[in-house]
Computed example of a mutant assay.
Amino acid sequence: MLKTCAGLHVVAQTPFRADGAVDFDSIDTLSAFYYRHGAQGLLVLGVSGEAQMLTPDEAVAVAARFVAASGDRRIVAGVSSPSLAVLESVTRDVMSEGADGVMICPPGHVRTDEEIIGYFGAVFDRIGDVPVVLQDFPAASGVKMSVPLIGRLLERFPAIEVIKEEDFPSPPKIGRLRAEMPRPVRILTGNNGMYLPQELERGADGPMAGFSYPEMLSGVYDLMQRDDRAGAHDLFNRYLPLLRYEAQGKWGIAIRKEMMRRRGALDCAILRQPAPALGEADLAELDFLVGRMDLPD
């Protein structure tokens, strides 16, 4: 069940070998890395997890390996697809492998409120009462969902148990969601954790984000839970230069994977092609940036 989601849920990277094949062994070391640094669960097959570069069979196999490495921690699988048939098939398979729920973002071809409601009606007709994280991410999907519309979705579809809020500006929208929703719902945040302190202050239940230092994300959450607002902001600010540097779309994922390779979480930092590759100037720039930040090994 997703109704008790709180704390850090890392958007997991998908490891690849140098030849572009999925590196299943590194899923184990990557999972251990995330949990060691405070993750309460993982989102697998997300956008920054390169889900769009996997075949449906690979996606299910990746989710299954993360479930096997989870130690009963929560695993949510991203299943968004313009094809309802693919969404239904992958949802069925990842849930049979032990996932706790799925995350769905509406596709770009639905625009009006009624189209969005109709789309989710068709989704739930196919997948039944599978627990769902509703992803509100218009920068990626092109779909705007207002607070009143999200309220209507929650009233109509009880299987929606979590909102992943990534609209801009996220803090005030989270505040409105917390105040206006028709039933209690968990709110997790994304956007690479860039606005985490303010989002937590407005009522978010934790981050669902990726960063090469996940202990910062979990640490900020823990400090806010202890009402140490100044300490949370100080910790966040310590890591901000690298967090900002990683928040550059697919190129930023290449930076994140390189940092995680350096930290021992991955054997190989490669992205599945076509994708950006870091050059000597990029690596030198990263060395200089990190060298000035006095970060943990």
Rank of each mutant, 00 (worst) to 15 (best):
D167V: 12
A140F: 14
F33E: 00
K144F: 12
G249H: 02
S89T: 11
R152F: 02
V133R: 09
A21F: 01
E50S: 14
L283Q: 01
V79C: 14
F24Q: 11
L243A: 08
L134H: 02
L295S: 03
F24G: 10
L87D: 10
P138Y: 03
I174C: 05
A59W: 03
V44R: 02
F124Q: 09
G38A: 07
D282V: 04
M216D: 12
Y239I: 10
F33P: 00
Q273A: 13
A12K: 07
A232Y: 08
G175E: 04
Q13Y: 09
V102L: 11
A247F: 08
Y35P: 03
E115Q: 01
V10D: 00
A140M: 15
Q225S: 01
I117E: 13
E180L: 11
L43S: 13
S31W: 02
Q135V: 08
D100W: 07
H9Q: 11
A59R: 12
L188I: 14
L278P: 05
V10A: 10
D100Q: 12
G121E: 15
R92I: 10
I117V: 15
V130M: 03
E166W: 08
A140I: 14
R36W: 00
M95D: 07
G38Q: 08
R229Y: 14
V102R: 11
K250M: 15
D136Q: 05
I104T: 09
V11E: 13
P158M: 06
G203R: 07
H109F: 14
F24R: 13
T91S: 14
G7Q: 12
Y245A: 13
R263N: 00
S89K: 12
P56T: 03
